[in-house]
């Protein structure tokens, strides 16, 4: 369970460019929730995920994960509890290293690295098995450098890496946005499958309203650093893309990116 209490994040405080990216966010996400997050450009979605991951400190408020106060934890310490996938497929993997090396590093997420063999034979077998489940043929390319993979393949690999060692929290920031629509849908299918299979508590940012309603059991809408909509389960099933668009229009935040992503 993830809990945010009055979390506030201000960028460039005290300058003319001061920007309140998160204004007193209160949020409770019980274990097993799969939450999709939508909102216009600059609404604070990435900032929300980044303060949860500890990329930068908060200006006020506390963050709890499983009743531990993690507010003061450094990013690499929180990594023990969280798996992350970024928008840019290049950011999630080490390009000059092989597929198996990347997976081996992910398997040890949050653990102390020692002078032990980096990959064991048993792990190789596990990697092959898990890669085969992706259905991309990567199980036969363990020794290929990740540089050789396409964006979609890299993002699928990153997703596998983020979930290889079960995280308490999976953070996905527009992880399908940089892919072509067809590949994006495939990666989303994979996401849904992995989340269900491992019962992962998940936060997924997306600009695609269809995706936001298709995946998960709960949807948040953000605007100007605040959560302006929080629907779940039965109520969310009744919500349509049309409703969401209407809400955007009412707030006057109908952005170009949204329009593009959700054109009929």
């Amino acid at each position: 369970m993830l809990r945010l209490k009055n979390v506030r994040k201000v960028f460039q405080a005290g300058t003319v460019n001061e920007k309140v990216a998160l204004a007193a966010i209160n949020l409770e996400i019980p274990a097993g929730d799969f939450v999709t997050i939508i909102g216009s450009n600059g609404a604070g979605k990435s900032t929300l995920l980044n303060v949860i991951a500890g990329v930068y400190p908060v200006d006020a408020g506390r963050i709890y994960l499983d009743d531990q106060d993690v507010t003061g934890w450094a990013e690499h310490v929180r990594a023990r509890l969280m798996g992350r996938v970024f928008q840019d497929p290049l950011l999630g993997t080490a390009a000059s290293m092989t597929i198996e090396e990347n997976l081996a590093m992910a398997l040890r997420r949050g653990e102390k690295r020692r002078l032990r063999k980096g990959i064991t034979a048993a792990e190789r077998a596990l990697f092959r098995e898990r890669l085969a489940e992706l259905g991309l043929g990567l199980e036969n390319r363990l020794n290929d450098r990740v540089r050789l993979l396409s964006g979609g393949q890299r993002q699928a690999l990153t997703l596998l890496m983020a979930t290889l060692k079960k995280p308490q929290l999976l953070l996905l920031d527009e992880h399908t946005a940089a892919l072509d629509p067809k590949t994006g849908e495939k990666v989303l299918d994979l996401t849904i499958r992995l989340v269900e299979e491992h019962r992962l508590t998940t936060l997924m940012v997306t600009h695609n309203l269809h995706q936001a309603l298709r995946a998960g059991n709960r949807t948040l809408m953000m605007d100007e650093g605040q959560i302006i909509l929080d629907v779940r389960d039965a109520e969310r099933q009744r919500t349509t893309v049309h409703d969401l668009l209407a809400l955007f229009e009412k707030r006057g935040v109908y952005s170009d990116k949204l329009l593009l992503a959700n054109a009929p």
């Binding site: 950011l91 000059s96 040890r108 980096g118």
Partner: peptide, 28 residues
């Protein structure tokens, strides 16, 4: 041998993609 250990992999990843290896829990 070193570059193929857990620690060696982490050092290599630090030079390749710092953000990635940080998100996997390594103090770069």
């Amino acid at each position: 041998l070193f570059l193929e250990t857990e620690l060696g992999l982490a050092v290599r990843a630090t030079g390749d993609n710092e953000q990635m290896i940080k998100s996997l829990g390594v103090n770069t």
